[in-house]
Amino acid sequence: MKWPALKLSPFWLCAAAIAVLGIAVTIFDLFNINTFIFFAGYVVLQYVVLATAWNIMGGYMGYVNFGTAGFFAVGAYASVVLYNLFQAPLALMIPFAGVVCALLGLAMGYLTLRLRGVFFAIATLAMAIVLETLIINWEFVGGATGAYILRSREQAPFGDYIEFLFFVMLLLAIFAVSVARWLELSRTGRGFIAIRDDEIAAECAGVPTLRLKLIATTVSGFLMGVAGAPFALYVSFIEPSSAFNLIYAVNAIAMPMIGGATTWLGPVIGALLLGTVQQVATVTISSELNLLIVGIVLVFFVIVAPEGIVGLLKKWLGGRRDDR
């Protein structure tokens, strides 16, 4: 089913990625290229995390989450809370945001997952708006007007602070992808697929469907929260409309769909591709047009290439699933 490159262990993947990064950082430092690369790269990597997190529910199990922006923003605001309380360091913000969103995911799942799948989808949409309303009315984190987060200008040994955040997000992306890949190859992951294909049959074949679904919402929520944790530091000014921006929800769906939703590689490819295009497009053409392109590409892919780029590649390489 997979070509050899896909069989690389997460360890080697991490190693390779870190090596590439190290080389890149050195080169950029040497040539003094401006920090825009890191600024843009951070966003792309953040989408790798979000798309991967979404795919655990959506791709593996077939449960659509429209509320990615809600989870992301709650992660970001969890950090703001810690910051306002005692100026917590990022190292504390990230796990805290993750845990808050994991609990949120668990609660969401518990309330809606016993219903038909589509109700889960609608409920996630509803949840994002309820949360946004709560944040707008919560003065402690800035309410509708937003809040400033002061960050240091530099962080040794990275030079610029954005460079540091880029590195943090890279680690988070590697972590998220490793978790997704590990799930995918585990018994739990095979249970997810059974649920996606036929939930009743899965249950009758001995799969504890409710428990697996709750695992998925919890893990997925955790990863989305983690992706949002450094957001306030990255933008240094956070407001509800930017943290809850629908673009996060759209991208989190579009990227796995474009890359291919059935493997961990799909969201990575989708995020790197679509994320990079968006970063380039925001600079070169208008940002609205860039959003329009995302929407059109999403619709185009779900109609024309339901298996995404990974599916196209597989077909193209003539890979059949007979080597298992």
């Binding site: 018994r187 095979r190 249970g191 697929i193 059974a194 996606r196 294909d197 036929d198 009743i200 049959a201 899965a202 009758c204 074949a205 001995g206 799969v207 504890p208 059935t262 699933r321 298992r324």
Partner: peptide, 28 residues
């Protein structure tokens, strides 16, 4: 207690053997 379904409900994205694998791994 095992049952079959009147309208077959295979796990369509898996192979026949993998279908059995789900039951073997989770039920037994």
């Amino acid at each position: 207690i095992a049952r079959s379904f009147q309208i077959p409900k295979p796990f369509r994205s898996l192979t026949v053997l993998e279908n059995l694998g789900i039951a073997l791994e989770f039920a037994t």
